[in-house]
Simulated scan of single mutants.
Amino acid sequence: MESKQPTSPDIFRADCLSRQVLHLIADEWTPLVIYALEEHTMRFGQLLKRIDGISTKMLTQILRALERNGLVQRVVYPVVPPVVEYSLTPLGQTLREPMQALKVWAYGHLQEVAQARATYDCLDHTPIQEATASLVQQRSL
């Protein structure tokens, strides 16, 4: 039985391909891999060193997913030991601008996010306290 795809993309629909594409690029590690590869072609070990905290297993999974979806090209050179290099494909290059915008936003709002976290962490978040604070705030308006 064929599954019907919506006539126009709707990211809020579970069966929409756009959601799968967003999931591909909106995880913790994929943007970092793309940032690293926009600098230049890299070997696996170089990527591991460049991206602090990523595991070998996770980097392998991310690179495979990016290759499968046409965003990264993997080239294996037939030498001993084998040399494998990764680079962004032309499709992967199209992510440079939106990823750069995310990086600029993140750098530009570091202090605001830190302040919001500190404020949030100082509050009592039990349900009764939050409801009371909300009522007090509404009454003061």
Results as ranks from 00 to 15, higher is better:
residue 3 S to C: 03
residue 3 S to P: 05
residue 4 K to V: 06
residue 6 P to Y: 08
residue 7 T to S: 07
residue 9 P to T: 08
residue 10 D to V: 04
residue 10 D to Y: 03
residue 12 F to E: 11
residue 13 R to Y: 02
residue 16 C to W: 00
residue 19 R to P: 05
residue 20 Q to W: 01
residue 25 I to Q: 02
residue 25 I to E: 06
residue 27 D to Q: 08
residue 28 E to C: 10
residue 29 W to T: 10
residue 30 T to I: 09
residue 33 V to E: 02
residue 34 I to N: 08
residue 37 L to H: 03
residue 44 F to E: 06
residue 47 L to Y: 00
residue 49 K to Y: 03
residue 49 K to M: 07
residue 51 I to P: 02
residue 52 D to A: 13
residue 53 G to C: 10
residue 56 T to F: 10
residue 57 K to S: 12
residue 57 K to N: 14
residue 58 M to H: 13
residue 58 M to A: 15
residue 59 L to S: 06
residue 64 R to H: 10
residue 65 A to Y: 06
residue 66 L to V: 03
residue 68 R to L: 13
residue 69 N to C: 06
residue 70 G to D: 04
residue 72 V to P: 04
residue 80 V to I: 00
residue 81 P to M: 00
residue 81 P to G: 02
residue 83 V to P: 00
residue 83 V to T: 01
residue 85 E to W: 00
residue 86 Y to W: 02
residue 87 S to T: 10
residue 87 S to K: 06
residue 89 T to C: 00
residue 90 P to L: 05
residue 93 Q to A: 14
residue 94 T to M: 07
residue 95 L to S: 04
residue 97 E to I: 14
residue 98 P to Y: 07
residue 101 A to W: 12
residue 101 A to R: 15
residue 105 W to G: 05
residue 105 W to Q: 12
residue 107 Y to T: 09
residue 109 H to F: 12
residue 112 E to N: 13
residue 116 A to W: 08
residue 118 A to S: 14
residue 118 A to K: 14
residue 119 T to E: 15
residue 121 D to A: 15
residue 125 H to Y: 05
residue 126 T to V: 05
residue 128 I to L: 11
residue 131 A to C: 04
residue 131 A to H: 06
residue 133 A to S: 11
residue 134 S to L: 13
residue 134 S to A: 14
